[in-house]
Simulated scan of single mutants.
Amino acid sequence: MPAASDGAAHPGATRLRALIVDDEPLARRGLEIRLRDHPDVEIVGQYGDGAAAITGLRKHHPDLMFLDVQMPGIDGFETLRSIPAAELPLVVFVTAYDHYAIRAFEASATDYLLKPVDESRLSQALDRVRRSHVQREASGHCAHLLGLLGELSGRPPLDLDAALRPDAIEQLRREDKLAVRDGGHTVRVDLAAIRWIDAAGDYMCIHTDGDTPQGKTLILRATMGELEKQLDPQRFPRIHRSTIVNARRVVELRPHSNGESFLRLDCGQELKLSRSHRDKLALLL
């Protein structure tokens, strides 16, 4: 497939991978020639009907599609209806009849071009495409991050205002549940039920209340650092290289002659407070 560029793109420009879909070979060729003046546009496929275009779209995952409205078999609008929204690129309709413009915009086209394609009008359409592409990338990235923040906090996806609040992280720490990624899913644990957390190789053991005096232990693939970021350090201090404790569950502290101390929890478990973490004593007394 011929490339759309005779030269390098402008520094910092985002390349646009494009499909041309038109049942007229001369129309495809004419648009290809005009796009050579826009080195940031790379033609990755050309197709003569809607069915082939759908196959090509799944193969190339383009950013942009120039789509003829009137084609035999599956026309431009039917082609769009056959593409899942998540896979839909930016679309510029190409038509010989301007009354299709209204339907084009109703179908969420970025712009439309009348045949024969005018060079200045093509430039205007590409300017609109570039702006839309930047906005789409930014909003998609933002939506992904907000969804991830919401998932990690165990709450519905956050909106932008909530995520940008200066106290957003502190607010997540004050939630009554700990959300921990475990493979492809998220486990939520009541903070009040946590007794202590310790590391076991690449895994974290979260010891919680259960139906028996021994409680129950959740074993998750995570790191101490990941859990510390979500927990309030005043409420869940780190007392050892591999141990975090729920300070509210400590009922007794017993100093040792070597500078270490032993903590007894309300469940009877004893934990060591190492010398390097003696600054946490004030939180535990």
Rank of each mutant, 00 (worst) to 15 (best):
A53Y: 07
H144K: 15
L122M: 08
L64W: 08
L31K: 11
R121E: 14
L35Y: 11
A51E: 11
G210R: 11
H207Y: 09
T186C: 01
I74Y: 12
A222G: 05
T79Y: 04
G183V: 03
S261V: 08
R275D: 07
P237Y: 11
R29M: 12
K229R: 15
R241G: 13
G210D: 04
L146Y: 13
E170L: 14
E228F: 10
V180Y: 03
S242K: 10
A168N: 02
Y203V: 05
Q214S: 11
M1R: 10
C205F: 07
H38N: 12
E226L: 10
G259K: 01
D211Q: 02
S257F: 14
S132R: 15
F262T: 13
S123L: 13
K177I: 15
T79N: 07
G140T: 02
A85K: 04
D63N: 12
R28H: 08
D40S: 09
F93T: 07
D279H: 01
D209L: 06
P116N: 13
G76C: 02
R103Y: 08
P237Q: 05
L57P: 03
P157T: 04
N258S: 06
L126P: 14
G225R: 13
R155K: 15
S276L: 00
Q214F: 08
D198K: 09
L191C: 05
D98N: 14
I74C: 02
S82A: 11
E170K: 13
P157R: 01
P213K: 00
G48Y: 03
N246Y: 01
L160E: 01
T55P: 11
A85G: 05
P25F: 06
E24L: 12
A101D: 02
H144Q: 15
C205R: 10
A101L: 06
M1N: 09
V41S: 06
T95N: 09
H133M: 02
